[in-house]
Amino acid sequence: MKYAKSHEWARLEEDGSVTIGITDHAQEALGDVVFVETPTEGDAIAAGDQAGVVESVKAASDIYAPVGGEVIGVNEGLEDEPERVNSDPYNDGWFFRLQPADTGELDVLMTAEEYAAMCDEDS
């Protein structure tokens, strides 16, 4: 997995697609997630573009695409169970999948160690 400064994660899948969600650190900071707005399948998104919104009992936060590409899937389960983001942010709580325009964009994202160090600095 790779991580963005805006607290999204990106995982390159075996089929070449990229799955995106928010990190455990981000969901902890947000608190209980009550609503998730994802992009629409077929949307073209550039790296850094707003791709949705996550709302919690505390606040609403924009979700940004850590890499660009075409949206090929969204986690429809979040519509009825947004709390999946809290209980399992890296598996059941994923937000959307992209067919990346350039997998090289993953190379500019942070490793797990770099992301953890950034979070430690912020706290």
Score class of each variant (00 low, 15 high):
residue 3 Y to C: 03
residue 5 K to C: 01
residue 8 E to S: 00
residue 8 E to P: 00
residue 9 W to Q: 07
residue 9 W to C: 04
residue 10 A to V: 14
residue 11 R to G: 00
residue 11 R to A: 06
residue 12 L to W: 04
residue 14 E to D: 15
residue 14 E to R: 13
residue 15 D to C: 01
residue 16 G to K: 12
residue 16 G to P: 13
residue 17 S to R: 12
residue 18 V to W: 04
residue 18 V to G: 09
residue 19 T to C: 11
residue 19 T to N: 01
residue 22 I to M: 10
residue 25 H to Q: 13
residue 25 H to T: 12
residue 26 A to F: 03
residue 27 Q to F: 10
residue 28 E to K: 14
residue 29 A to R: 06
residue 31 G to N: 03
residue 33 V to D: 04
residue 35 F to Y: 13
residue 37 E to Y: 03
residue 37 E to L: 04
residue 37 E to N: 11
residue 38 T to G: 05
residue 40 T to I: 00
residue 41 E to C: 14
residue 41 E to N: 13
residue 41 E to P: 14
residue 41 E to Y: 06
residue 42 G to K: 00
residue 44 A to H: 13
residue 45 I to W: 06
residue 45 I to P: 07
residue 46 A to L: 04
residue 46 A to H: 03
residue 47 A to I: 00
residue 47 A to E: 11
residue 47 A to S: 15
residue 48 G to Q: 03
residue 48 G to I: 08
residue 48 G to M: 00
residue 49 D to S: 13
residue 50 Q to A: 10
residue 52 G to V: 04
residue 52 G to T: 05
residue 53 V to A: 09
residue 54 V to A: 12
residue 54 V to C: 09
residue 58 K to N: 11
residue 59 A to Q: 13
residue 64 Y to T: 07
residue 64 Y to F: 15
residue 66 P to M: 11
residue 66 P to K: 04
residue 68 G to E: 02
residue 68 G to F: 13
residue 68 G to Y: 08
residue 70 E to F: 05
residue 70 E to Q: 14
residue 71 V to K: 08
residue 71 V to L: 05
residue 75 N to C: 03
residue 79 E to K: 14
residue 80 D to N: 12
residue 82 P to F: 08
residue 83 E to V: 12
residue 85 V to Y: 02
residue 85 V to A: 10
residue 86 N to C: 11
residue 88 D to I: 05
residue 89 P to F: 03
residue 91 N to W: 02
residue 91 N to R: 08
residue 97 R to L: 04
residue 98 L to D: 10
residue 98 L to E: 06
residue 99 Q to I: 00
residue 100 P to Y: 11
residue 102 D to M: 02
residue 102 D to R: 05
residue 106 L to D: 01
residue 106 L to E: 11
residue 107 D to S: 14
residue 107 D to C: 07
residue 108 V to H: 02
residue 110 M to C: 01
residue 110 M to D: 04
residue 111 T to P: 09
residue 112 A to R: 10
residue 113 E to M: 05
residue 113 E to N: 01
residue 114 E to Q: 14
residue 115 Y to N: 05
residue 115 Y to S: 01
residue 119 C to E: 12
residue 119 C to W: 03
residue 119 C to F: 01
residue 119 C to N: 08
residue 120 D to C: 00
residue 121 E to P: 01
residue 122 D to N: 04
residue 122 D to A: 11
residue 123 S to D: 15
